[in-house]
């Protein structure tokens, strides 16, 4: 067979194949007709054969390029990632996520200490020497904290409350979840970025807490009554986001028997899931912080609710277990261990 005969013979199939691909590309997956898919996979295989024939006979770069493009397009159509339904997400968040976190115990403890040690130290420093706190955290920050918590801001739940707090909900989400995702992403620099974020957040929170405690009036109790309920989600979430970053950094620093890139890729998936879980927690935290924390109800009620939330979160993180093996840890693994080409 010479080249021209080959092209004449096969051209029809190529044309048909192109038409099918053009059609399928414009249609969502669930409307694909089985006849099309069957025809496509048959044609795809034959065109793969054509391509290798042209490659081996060296029938020209143009023809090869053309067939190569055809194969690439078909490959893209046929080998999609399996559509993973969103319905696994709640299950993952409830049980798989805490299990994943417990699996990364060491990173979590390291992250926890990177956050709490600076927090405690700076709280003690600020409590004993408010002037140092002002130097470190800045005068305005502390003044505004003082103003915010010196009295109950909201006395009634009205339209103004709803309006203002909705605004703040958006702000809290954007700010806090942004920081946590950053803590995850910057972990890729050997974990240093995450550590910096953890430490700096620990210091600024500790400074504020120590400073308002040193005021010895209503402010301190207002502050803690405000912070306790959403803190149940927010503080663990920050530490978990830091954990995610440290896991990435661990992949870079200690690749073990893998290449550094492979180690990074190996740790990345679990790390990403941790970061996403932290994001979910921060979404909850933002809602609580916006609508519940400043509620004009007695302090003790908010404290009791906050304590309950802490108990729930801790119990959840420590005890939740995926039932059976259909855990979401599988989410973490499935991609990695899936054979590369699977229909």
């Amino acid at each position: 067979m010479n080249r021209e005969r080959f092209i004449r013979q096969r051209g029809n199939d190529w044309y048909q194949y192109e038409q099918i691909i053009k059609h399928l590309r414009g249609t969502p997956l669930r409307y694909w007709r089985s006849a099309d898919v069957l025809a496509l996979s048959r044609l795809y295989r034959s065109i793969c054969y054509d391509l290798s024939l042209v490659q081996s006979r060296e029938w020209g770069a143009q023809l090869e390029q053309y067939l190569n493009d055809l194969v690439a397009q078909g490959h893209n159509c046929l080998y999609r990632s399996p559509p993973r339904s969103v319905s696994v997400l709640p299950g993952f968040f409830l049980t798989g996520f805490p299990a994943l976190l417990r699996k990364r115990k060491l990173a979590f403890l390291l992250s926890l200490s990177l956050f709490t040690v600076p927090l405690v130290v700076s709280a003690v420093v600020a409590y004993l020497r408010p002037d140092v706190a002002e130097m470190v955290a800045g005068h305005e920050t502390l003044e505004s904290a003082k103003q915010n918590f010196s009295e109950q801001h909201w006395n009634v739940v009205d339209e103004r409350y709803a309006s203002d707090r909705s605004k703040m909900a958006g702000f809290y989400l954007k700010n806090n979840a942004g920081i946590s995702f950053q803590a995850f992403a910057l972990g890729v620099f050997c974990g240093i970025g995450s550590a910096l974020i953890l430490v700096s957040n620990g210091i600024s929170l500790g400074m504020t807490a120590g400073f308002v405690s040193s005021l010895r009036d209503e402010t301190a109790s207002n502050f803690f009554a405000f912070i306790v309920s959403h803190g149940a989600f927010e503080l663990p979430a920050i530490v978990i986001a830091g954990t995610a970053g440290l896991v990435l950094g661990y992949g870079v620093l200690c690749p073990g028997s893998r290449t550094r890139t492979a180690a990074l890729q190996h740790h990345a998936r679990e790390s990403l899931l941790l970061a996403l879980g932290a994001g979910m927690m921060l979404l909850l935290a933002a809602l609580i912080e916006a609508f519940f924390s400043p509620l004009p109800v007695a302090r003790w009620i908010r404290c009791v609710v906050g304590m309950c939330l802490w108990a729930i979160v801790l119990a959840w993180l420590l005890l939740a277990r995926p039932s059976g093996d259909e855990s979401s840890l599988q989410i973490a693994r499935s991609d990695e261990e899936r054979p590369d080409h699977e229909n």
Partner: peptide
């Protein structure tokens, strides 16, 4: 042949 011929209307030629 030389040009990316079959790209369009390759079917017409068969």
């Amino acid at each position: 042949i030389g040009t990316p011929g079959p790209v369009s209307g390759g079917g017409g030629r068969s």
